[in-house]
Design a protein around this nucleic acid. Structure first.
Length: 455
RNA sequence: UCCUCUGUAGCUCAGCGGUAGAGCGGGUGGCUGUUAACCACUAGGUCGUUGGUUCGAUCCCAACCGGAGGAGCCA
């Protein structure tokens, strides 16, 4: 008999009748005459309650040893439950123990700390929270493709191994080939030159935007920063759209629309899992997501933001000063106290931003933007790109960068240059925002952070 | 890289200058259409590592290792 998924049964209006389910035992309650088993197969948060009479053939061999963590296959009839707490239950006619779980199975029927769960990352998806988080992660990945595909964006796979050693977006991991235990470098490089793991697909993405108009990338990104925070990982996923014939306003509008769309998608399609997060992770989660979906985001220029912070009367650990980057505490004040909603800050001083951002007419600022959300900070960083050849070359020189290394990038400005803009959205930061989970390590299946590459 | 906190049973923690306890989990028995079930009994620990102080250290000190939070950097 073919297997039916638990989610289908739990959502069924009428009894699916005689069926087979397969999954893992979450808990079991024995009585003399029968056992209750809670079966979860990962198709949804909820478990299916199974009633197994002690008179079943094979009860001793299959049901008795089917303790928490064991995998089983059960055939039987779905009937309305006599007990409180569930609509349907499975009256078993046959139970097969597929894989036993000894009594040292680490996941107990109690709350565990997130730290402990990280130490058993191979088993934590079997818990309620991590099952929910990773179903949401999957759905959000799908929703991202849907968002862009519906708007005519082309998905581009930019390289993971890159030779651009000064993308300016952070410390990079070096790619080398091994000769036994020694690394082959110098004049004997596999690629003929030093290569690195990408820190951004933006520069390559721009080339495709200047051909296919609207593109996006969605893939792994690597930073070798020695960061020990709840918001940084060495390996994470990033979404980077790039749009030709687009200015900063269009860029900001796209970022805001995207965040709203993804939040809405989660509310609609991950309701049960979000409800769990709302109850056990962050009590205000759903209210906040609905707020983000329904209300317009705030927009302020960097100059206005600085004035606002100076006028706030707040004492900050780092003083607010025009020309300096906004500190975490400043961003937090804006999103969590002043506006109390997602906020886009734009037009930053050119000195604190990279060479490729478009110089504004005031000569002092560039057309950059950061979308900040309460609780997390920057979730999107983007800009209109400098499309004027002479200005771009001047920027390269001003920042002491080797012009020849960016030859192909500069070519975009030599041949049919167009105004264009784009941004990067940290996938995991979005997930933290959507699930309320406070640590990036808990929205990545097997997180890589300094000193940790287990599993 | 810097600052702070932390490391005691499988898990979560308490404790004390004279070598340790609880709850949960595990095991055994009982009971019940149960649902983080309940009741009784029971087994688990060279108190992160290495030095130092001391008659004596799990407890005090130092270094190291691991974990967490914050800062910077950013996504």
């Amino acid at each position: 008999m073919s297997r039916i998924r638990v989610v289908e049964i739990l959502r069924s209006e009428t009894s699916p009748g005689h069926i087979t389910v397969k999954g893992w035992v979450r808990t079991k309650r024995d009585s003399k005459a029968f056992s209750f088993l809670e079966l979860n197969d990962g198709s949804c948060l909820g478990n299916l309650q199974i009633v197994a009479d002690a008179s079943l053939p094979g009860y001793e061999e299959a049901v008795v040893p089917a303790r928490t963590g064991a995998s089983i296959e059960v055939e039987g009839t779905i009937v309305a439950s006599q007990g409180e707490g569930q609509k349907w239950e499975l009256q078993a006619s046959r139970v097969v123990l597929v894989g036993a779980a000894p009594e040292d199975y680490p996941l107990q029927k109690k709350g565990h700390t997130m730290e402990f769960m990280r130490s058993i990352a191979h088993l934590r998806p079997r818990s309620n929270l991590f099952g929910a988080v990773f179903r949401i992660r999957s759905r959000m990945a799908y929703a991202i493709h849907q968002f862009f595909q519906e708007r005519g964006f082309v998905y581009v796979h930019t390289p993971i191994i890159t030779g651009s050693d000064c993308e300016g977006a952070g410390e990079m991991f070096r790619v080398v080939t091994m000769e036994g235990e020694t690394m082959r470098t110098g004049g004997d490089e596999f690629f003929g030159k030093p290569t690195y793991l990408t820190v951004s697909g933006q520069l390559e993405g721009e080339t495709f935007a200047c051909a296919l108009s609207n593109i996006y990338t969605f893939g792994p990104t690597f930073r070798a920063e020695n960061s020990h925070t709840s918001r940084h990982a060495a390996e994470f996923w990033m979404i980077e759209p790039e749009v030709a014939f687009c200015d900063l306003d269009g860029d900001m509008a796209l970022a805001e629309e995207m965040v709203k769309d993804l939040v809405n998608d989660a509310l609609v399609n991950c309701a049960e899992d979000l409800d769990f997060c709302n109850r056990f992770v962050d009590k205000g989660l759903i209210e906040r997501l609905e707020f983000v979906r329904d209300r317009a985001f705030e927009r302020v220029s960097y100059t206005e933001a600085v004035a606002l912070l100076l006028a706030s009367g707040q004492t900050f650990e780092y003083p607010v000063e025009y020309g300096h980057a906004l500190q975490s505490e400043h961003e937090r004040y804006l999103t969590e106290h002043h506006f109390r909603c997602p906020t886009t800050v734009y037009n930053y001083p050119k000195e604190i931003k990279p060479f490729y951002m478009r110089r504004n007419d005031d000569g002092k600022t560039v057309a950059a933007m950061d979308l900040l959300v309460p609780g997390i900070g920057e979730i999107v960083g983007g800009s209109q790109r400098e499309e004027r050849l002479e200005v771009l070359l001047a920027n390269l020189r001003e920042q002491g960068l080797e012009e020849s290394a960016y030859d192909w990038y500069v070519d975009l400005r030599r041949y049919g240059s167009v105004p264009h803009a784009g941004f990067g959205l940290g996938f995991e930061r979005l997930l933290m925002f959507v699930t309320g989970v406070g640590n990036i390590r808990d929205v990545i299946p097997f997180p890589r952070t300094p000193g940790t590459a287990e599993f």
